[in-house]
Amino acid sequence: MSVENHVDHWGTSPGDPVSAALAAIDTALGELLAMDPAYWRTSQKKDVLVRLQHLKAQQAALELRVLATSGDIAEETGDKDASAWMRADLLVDKGVARSQIKLAAAVSKHELLAAGLADGVVSASKARVITKALDAIEANPVASAEDLLLAEKLLVDYATRLTANELRIVGRRILVEIDPARFEDAEAKALLAEEERAQQKTALRIWDNHDGTIGFDGVLPVALGMRFKTQVEAWAQPRKQQLVEKGSPLPPWERLMGQGFARMLETIEPDALPRHGGRRDHHQRGHLARRPPQGARHRNPRVRRGQRDHDQRHRGPQDGLQRHDHPLGPRRRRPSPRRRSIQSLLPADPAQGTPVAAEVLPGRWM
């Protein structure tokens, strides 16, 4: 049933209340935009930001209510939802529009959350976090309807004191707060599964930029990543303190972190690196690195074969001796085929038994 009044023959029927309310909002915003905030007092600026935050939450609540009942728009356009109309008329990406419609359907199922949005105490981003947490609880076979209702009440209360990211962390463990005896084991299993997924996602990619720099990116588990961040920050701070003492301007924090990471790598001893076999092993350790003992073997069985081949290539005529450690001295360099062919063609001196040209030019052929 439509509430629109297209014809007012006697001039007594009220106008459209929705259009009148939107016009009042438009007028009030226009008056505020006509002012210059530079001349406002500090208390006025704080009050404006606080009230605008509440108004944005209420605006999101109204928008979600309209989207939750937008089935008639979909029927009019012949689509399964109103996302196609939002894409055509409002120029909203279809993925964003469908996400909004999905959020509207989820909020409409939870009265406390919808009331928090309407009161302006829960923002749209926090409402999205709460709905995801409640959907996970609803899919949990151990949780009951009472647990779901109590979790909704706690999350809405936490939304008035926490940010969206903090609320997301609390939402993962909200069942443990409700009943630790029942959900502690499930929480432990969930944490173990999360750690296993983090280990499977661990990756590192390194590439050459061909401009004197190396680029890399990767993914680490939370524990290792935070440890890595702490160590790099520790190596970056001394240079920052030196620049502060000298009175020099500080470079960007990203550059300080990169320099700290480079310093941390320089402290790694080449001899402490695991051997992986092959000739590149010595290049990785540095040209001046000391060669490990001959009988040393790496604990990793996957590199034993490469290390054995590496040791056999460097053995001398006697077993267990390197070529440069052989008692007969280092092996002499064999002359090139061209040098041997020229010496064989020179006439020999009968008295000396050496080529004649060798006496005249000893440095050329010897």
Score class of each variant (00 low, 15 high):
N140Y: 07
I130F: 06
E166Y: 10
V122M: 01
L155P: 09
L117F: 04
G116V: 08
V121L: 06
D135Y: 01
E152N: 09
V121F: 04
N140W: 06
T160E: 15
E138T: 14
L154K: 11
A124V: 15
R128G: 13
K153E: 11
N140E: 07
E138N: 10
L134K: 09
L167D: 15
S125C: 05
R168C: 03
D135P: 00
L167I: 14
A164I: 06
S123R: 00
A159Q: 01
K153G: 06
I137C: 06
E166H: 12
K153F: 04
S144H: 07
D135N: 04
V156W: 03
G120V: 01
K153Q: 12
L162A: 10
A145V: 01
P141F: 00
A127H: 04
R128V: 10
V129P: 03
L154V: 11
E166V: 08
A145R: 00
V122I: 13
K153I: 02
S125V: 11
L154T: 11
I130E: 08
D135E: 12
I130N: 04
A145Q: 05
T163L: 08
S144G: 14
R172Q: 15
L162D: 12
V122R: 01
K126D: 03
T160Y: 13
S123M: 05
G171R: 02
D147S: 01
R172C: 12
G171A: 12
A145L: 04
L117A: 09
I130Q: 05
L134C: 12
L154R: 14
T131N: 05
T160W: 10
S123Y: 09
N165A: 11
D147A: 02
A139L: 08
L155V: 05
R172S: 15
A164C: 08
L155H: 03
V142W: 03
A118K: 13
T163A: 06
E146L: 02
V142C: 07
A159V: 09
V121R: 07
A139I: 00
E138Y: 14
S125Y: 07
A133T: 10
K132H: 14
V142M: 11
E146D: 06
T163N: 07
A139N: 08
S123N: 05
A118G: 12
V121G: 08
A143I: 08
R128W: 14
D157V: 12
L162M: 14
Y158P: 00
V156A: 11
V170P: 00
L117I: 08
R161D: 11
L148R: 15
I130K: 02
K153N: 09
I169K: 15
A124N: 13
A136E: 11
D157L: 13
S123F: 09
A159S: 13
A151F: 01
R128Q: 12
V142A: 13
G116D: 12
N165C: 05
I137H: 01
T160D: 10
A118L: 14
K132C: 15
Y158W: 02
T160R: 15
